[in-house]
Design a protein around this nucleic acid. Structure first.
Lengths: 144, 144
DNA sequence: TAGATTGCCGAATTATGTTCGGTCTGATGG
DNA sequence: CCATCAGACCGAACATAATTCGGCAATCTA
């Protein structure tokens, strides 16, 4: 994980579609060497996968909300319960007064309410506190 | 935006590196037609870009926290101020008691504290409430 | 219904991914 | 101090895939 690797990751975050030749030129390597570097970054798990960034509103997920989930039991083994709700994009165990924080995307506030209902159905969940996003300033890749 | 487009977006989210031939076979189209569909999805902004999914811990961002930012002024024009802090991965204006919610990734809790200090320096910011993530259950693409 | 438009197929062409032999460099250890 | 080894790179060859384009069929439009 040297400077060249970091530069490769940075550039691939910005555009994973460019050629190894272009990528190599940018960091001062041949296409072959670049290919090998990127292969190893994948192998080591630094790069998990290549994907596309989709406009949520364009695919029927125009409403974004964060939900703090309170519980009266240990939630450490409940990951699958949260994963079973497709509208949940992220779920984390947190320190602080709540136990779990989830990021939810739905088409409407009505569907958001339905997600809350399904959250309450999870074993141990005793309450929720939803925060609706009015406007997103930005969502961007990791710094390097 | 028909069923085929949705299938394409879904599959590209899972693996943006596969060939148009493979993608086309999966949805019942030729490589050429698939190429054209995907090109239009980009043109329309449904697909914003192709990128890589990076392991945060592998690039020095092992600490994740969400910070509720309180303010005593209208924050609607402060997007750039938040964007100027590179550790902030997301920033949203929210409904509720706080004004802004930001997602922060740092290498250590010490650096997290430094981000909080820089948040206080933003005009109008009157307080912060940080929630540290202990364990991430999952982070995944949008449902379709 | 004629004309225009759109979406698709399949093949030709161009560009890129991928592999490999050979070279160089720095580290190892005798 | 020198021989050996491992790792990384280059450049070229080969294999695949991206991209373009003519032609056809289905669907609108006037």
């Amino acid at each position: 994980m040297d400077d060249i690797d970091r530069a490769l990751v940075l550039r691939l975050q910005q555009d994973a579609g460019q050629s190894y030749a272009a990528l190599g030129t940018a960091v001062g390597l041949s296409a072959g060497a670049t290919h090998e570097r990127v292969r190893k970054l994948r192998e080591r798990g630094v790069i998990r996968r290549t994907t596309i960034d989709v406009d949520p509103a364009a695919v029927g997920s125009g409403v974004l909300a964060y939900v703090m989930v309170d519980s009266n039991a240990w939630m450490g083994e409940s990951g699958d319960d949260f994963a079973a709700i497709p509208e949940i994009q992220e779920a984390h165990i947190i320190a602080g007064s709540a136990s779990v924080l989830v990021k939810v995307r739905t088409a409407s506030t009505g569907q958001l309410q339905d997600v809350l209902r399904r959250l309450y159905a999870i074993n141990g969940v005793s309450g929720t506190h939803a925060t609706v996003v009015l406007e997103t300033f930005f969502e961007r890749p990791l710094p390097l």
